[in-house]
Design a protein around this nucleic acid. Structure first.
Length: 491
RNA sequence: GUCUCCUUCGUCUAGUGGUUAGGACACCGGGUUUUCAUCCCGGCAACAGGGGUUCGACUCCCCUAGGAGAUGCCA
């Protein structure tokens, strides 16, 4: 039987790193096996559902360049692929469980459950009050509940003794005593919607899912799901519980660790290829040294047996490093295209860019490439090329070993050399700088430094002479003169 | 509390009885360089602890410790 796997997110929040990695592993596994990758939207929680989350799901995967073979938007033979549209199916199967004696109606209200929990010394779960009701008791409780305008829920009967086990492709055999399983979980809620457990099992069966690759946080409900399959008389799929993605403190990755949604990373200027590459390496490896993989390569090389058991910590710095590598390997034309929105966003260029701006962008590409870790850094890096910038304090131009007077002298000499850029090459002018700095008995850096501040407004910038050419020599001179004047006034 | 799972450098990992325990990020040094980056070179740094099994354990078994997850009419 050919492989069929699914990613089954719940549209209750933005797509985050953990979920996306699960999707990716499913996708890579499907591709490597020549199988199908399916998207199923699990929108059974009406209270937490949001349209924005659903939209974010589509936006995220479109941006990542990951496509599913079957799903709500592309169709398929096993639809509908949205659980709220499969409503009747779950009711039907809950009823079947009722008939076969594997489930029962529970008339406990939220209030009673709360009281019950409060009175429990240890959290032992539902007390199974409604599990073995006599017909009379049941009638009475049903009437009471109806009076309050509420509907009963359906709970699954967990066997009181024995044990349930399943095989996990990564973890090996996992066994759990039935008495340790959450006592009689709700499978159909009061609002008629199924809970995750029921919907998941029914859908995975009907969609002929062969392998379930999901996060390890689901391990504890594995036995429950197996019991459900057994109750229906179905063959459970193969399980493969993926190691989780943690924050630096070892807790589940969350907002307080930094960005977690793909949307945020996108906004900060991470490239989808870099994100995918990095995220794939948390909990999975290919061999002892290779770590650069295109999406295509991952589609071929991914294997379950290289998956790790232990959870992995998300390392923002390594992601940034990957991103820098990917930026440097991007063609200029392509990078430019990606950079423009960030320049617009930073209010550095017009939207759309003018011809003049286009030219500047073309020309700074090589200068900027090795300096970027994220696309979002472009604004502050090249702002001075488009806008007049002044140092917040002219004295940051004064090198440690020089005083203001000497700085002015050096600046004036440098100014003339910058002016000579009009007729000489950068190389020639650079040589002139060398001899001039010797003559003035200052280090080359101390000569360039003040000019840099004058032209770029900062002590850190792309190469100075190239920058001057990009801005225009006259404009550069104007800025330098302005700095000289500002420093002179402080003498 | 209970249950389940996990445990190699700070981090991601390679390793499946015999290795100087390898790579990458980070960090630290050095080189290139007009600053910052890039790039190159070098360094620091790990088998959680204790018992076994074995001629020999990072590798197999047991215990302890630590960590995580689950324990919902959320997924």
């Amino acid at each position: 039987m050919s492989v069929r796997v699914r990613y089954a997110p719940s549209p209750t929040g933005l797509q985050h790193i953990g979920g996306v990695r699960t999707a990716l592993f499913n996708y890579f596994f499907a591709r490597s096996q020549g199988g199908k990758f399916i998207l199923r939207v699990e929108d059974t929680d009406q209270t937490r559902y949001s349209d924005e989350s659903l939209q974010d799901l589509y936006d995220t995967f479109e941006w990542l360049g990951i496509k599913w073979d079957e799903g709500p938007d592309v169709g398929g033979d096993f639809g509908p692929y949205v659980q709220s549209e499969r409503f009747d199916l779950y009711r039907e199967y809950a009823d079947k469980l009722l008939e076969s004696g594997h489930a029962y109606r529970c008339y406990c209200t939220a209030e009673r459950l709360e009281e019950m929990r409060a009175s429990q010394k240890k959290a032992t779960g539902y007390d199974r009050r409604c599990r073995d009701l006599s017909p009379d008791e049941e009638k009475k409780l049903a009437a009471e509940l109806e009076e309050k305008g509420l509907k009963p829920v359906i709970r699954f009967k967990i066997p009181l003794d024995g044990a349930t086990s399943f095989h996990d492709e990564i973890m090996g055999d996992i066994k759990r005593k039935n008495k340790d399983i959450n006592p009689d979980p709700v499978i159909l809620k009061g609002d008629g919607f199924p809970t995750y457990h029921l919907a998941n099992v029914v859908d995975d069966h009907y969609m002929q899912i062969t392998h379930i690759l999901r996060a390890q946080e689901w391990i504890p409900s594995g036995p429950l799901h197996v019991l459900l399959y057994q109750a229906f008389g179905w063959e459970p799929p193969k399980y493969c519980h993926l190691p989780m993605v943690m924050g630096k403190d070892g807790q589940k990755l969350s907002k307080r660790h930094g960005s977690t949604s793909v949307r945020e990373f996108r906004k900060e200027g991470y490239l989808p290829e870099a994100l995918i590459n990095y995220v794939s390496l948390i909990g999975w490896s290919y061999d002892d040294s290779r770590e650069f993989f295109t999406i295509k390569e991952l589609e071929e090389l991914f294997t379950l047996d290289k998956l790790n058991k232990a959870p992995g910590v998300f390392d923002y710095k390594k992601l940034a490093w990957f991103n820098g590598q990917y930026i440097r390997n991007t063609e200029d034309a392509e990078l430019k295209k990606q950079l423009i929105p960030f320049l617009v966003e930073a209010d550095v260029i017009a939207d759309p860019p003018t011809d003049e701006e286009q030219k500047v962008i073309d020309n700074f590409m090589e200068l900027v490439k090795p300096r970027l870790k994220t696309l979002g850094e472009i604004g502050s890096l090249v702002k001075f090329l488009f806008k007049d910038v002044e140092p917040e304090d002219p004295e940051i131009a004064v090198p440690k070993k020089l005083d203001i007077a000497k700085t002015v002298e050096v600046l004036s000499a440098g100014r003339d050399l910058v002016a000579s850029l009009k007729e000489n090459s950068i190389e020639d002018v650079e040589n002139s700088f060398r001899s001039k700095s010797e003559e003035l008995e200052v280090k080359l850096g101390d000569m360039m430094g003040p000019l840099r501040v004058g032209v770029t407004g900062s002590n850190v910038s792309p190469p100075l002479l190239e920058s001057c050419e990009l801005i225009g020599i006259d404009e550069s001179l104007r800025r330098i003169d302005r700095l000289i004047a500002a420093l002179k006034s402080r003498l």
